[in-house]
Write a protein that binds this DNA or RNA. Sequence first.
DNA 1: GGGTGCAACTATAGCGATTTAGTAAAACGG
DNA 2: CCGTTTTACTAAATCGCTATAGTTGCACCC
Lengths: 340, 340
Amino acid sequence: MNKAKRVTITDIARLAGVSPGAVSFALNGRPGVSAQTRQRILDIAEESQWLPNSAARALVGSHAGVIGFAVNRSAGTLGAEAFFTDLIAGVQSALAGKRIAMQMVLVSSVEEEVATYRRWHSAKQVDGVIVIDPRDDDPRLPVLRDLALPAVVLGSHASPEGHPATIWLDDSQVAHSLFDYLGALGHRSIAYVAGPAEFQHTRLRTEVLAGLGERGVRGEVIATDFSPAAASTAMRRLLSRLERPTAVVFDNDVMAIAGLRVAQEMGVPVPKDLSVASFDDSVVAGLVHPSITCITRDTFGLGAEAAKFLLEQIDAPDVLADRIGAMPQLTVRESTAVPR
Amino acid sequence: MNKAKRVTITDIARLAGVSPGAVSFALNGRPGVSAQTRQRILDIAEESQWLPNSAARALVGSHAGVIGFAVNRSAGTLGAEAFFTDLIAGVQSALAGKRIAMQMVLVSSVEEEVATYRRWHSAKQVDGVIVIDPRDDDPRLPVLRDLALPAVVLGSHASPEGHPATIWLDDSQVAHSLFDYLGALGHRSIAYVAGPAEFQHTRLRTEVLAGLGERGVRGEVIATDFSPAAASTAMRRLLSRLERPTAVVFDNDVMAIAGLRVAQEMGVPVPKDLSVASFDDSVVAGLVHPSITCITRDTFGLGAEAAKFLLEQIDAPDVLADRIGAMPQLTVRESTAVPR
DNA sequence: GGGTGCAACTATAGCGATTTAGTAAAACGG
DNA sequence: CCGTTTTACTAAATCGCTATAGTTGCACCC
């Protein structure tokens, strides 16, 4: 068995004939060694394939070299939505090359999420976290503030400026761009099959839809748990009524696809008799037939920006300036049309 | 600003009036302290919300408390496939409760993947890894063996038994269950739109299809990069020919959905004139119209099993007994039928 | 020429756990 | 009741790295 003993800075120090301290200076680009010695040390480190032991580094108090991502979704809905993988892929793209890893954990409640942050902080396991799905009166934000754990929140929330840093996503704008589009097409009865009511974006979207009332649009909201089954049920109920809505908007693409299927099963032609749209895009939304009109967000880019922002904040926790996320675009596809 | 100073075993030792060593014994259920003292220490630790500093633990040489997962897929195809999220969700389910985290990284080549394993091992960043998509002559396996890094490989590969441990997935069986089904329906010309040729499962499936030649089935393989665009192109080419295949099988569900759309665009009724099937299932595959006949694998369960197996191996690296993964099932849906 | 400054290092003290060796007191045994 | 084992601890080393306080040696300058 290959023992593969790990190379430490002490080994390098011995090889270079200097003290471990000098090696540390050299490897971290700190003053305290001559250019010549520094180069010699770097060469030896390279040759002997030295890699820093992250545990030791984390212990001495600098960085853990890890950012954390706690996802509060059931395992089932996780796999269905492309949002997470896209976001993660974006985060990874920003982390590539840097010696920073991402730790991910699935939690099943906000309480558990908060506990995870506490544990991560206490165990010095992560340097910062990415937080999604802000809620009204979000219990996570004060905790992150208390722990002084660097964080980037994606979305819009009521918290005052400052920690935690936020990439603001203007959900009202987003809701407007989709609902206004449907209104402009002539739809006067729109149903919105939403996710859980406690999410901030659900509330904002609901408000925007309600706001269209002045313009003669009757809106209706059905809360679900994001599952395709719930979407099917909602759709079936909507289409069984005498007064059907002429457009149904879903919170994500999987629910929209589920809804689409129900419409087809019930013989309701889309988009002729019914328009369908989704607040979330994905590759598949553009591939099904009819393809689904969606709000297209650069989730990958968002993930990358979030990671970069987080890293900046970890480096300089005091320099805080919230950012505005890229505005999502409306992608009109085949599933929406002028109502009959 | 809340300083939130971290509690260490030294603090607990002081509070309990014992030495840090005794606290360590107590907290780890090791002999060396009286039952009474142990309880007192545990109580104090609980009260003061002590949590082990994982960096310190990793440094002394026990465990890092982290398992690693390096995914070699482009960011784009990652989000499209539910496989990864399902697998990850499964892994997480097995890790929940235990104090073990999962680190994930996206790599873009096998070389980079190998380098990642080297780095992880050298930096003692992970205790073990999960390896997917085995290849012919896989360069990763000898490296893992050399590093003696605990690992679990998912799939079938040519390596002799022993390290790394494997959960064998019988891809020939899987291929048989799908291709034989199509053959039994009466299909005599089957196209297989596959992933990259270097994957072991691509080869095995190709072999099975070729084997059907004796029974009068003409098979044909088109290699792609797993992207829906490539699937569309392949499908368009297949359907433009005079002699169309009567069934097309895709390596994953997203490609199948892309192919389905092409068929619909070209006015080829599915399943009447063309059967479509996929080697990978997902929620969406069952929701599109027509729903797609798939090989359904309990990916979530597989992830959970892989994680459990890996943890066992980390605990006892010498006790190795490969396992047989659960056999995937054929899920017949609307997209396949007797050919005209 | 002796004080001052600076560059280039070394020595050493942690960080928070684990772990081994050592020690005092209690229990045991004949 | 004395020698031996066991119990219940403490003291101290250790992991790999960082950071701070020295310690040289050499140039500079009035």
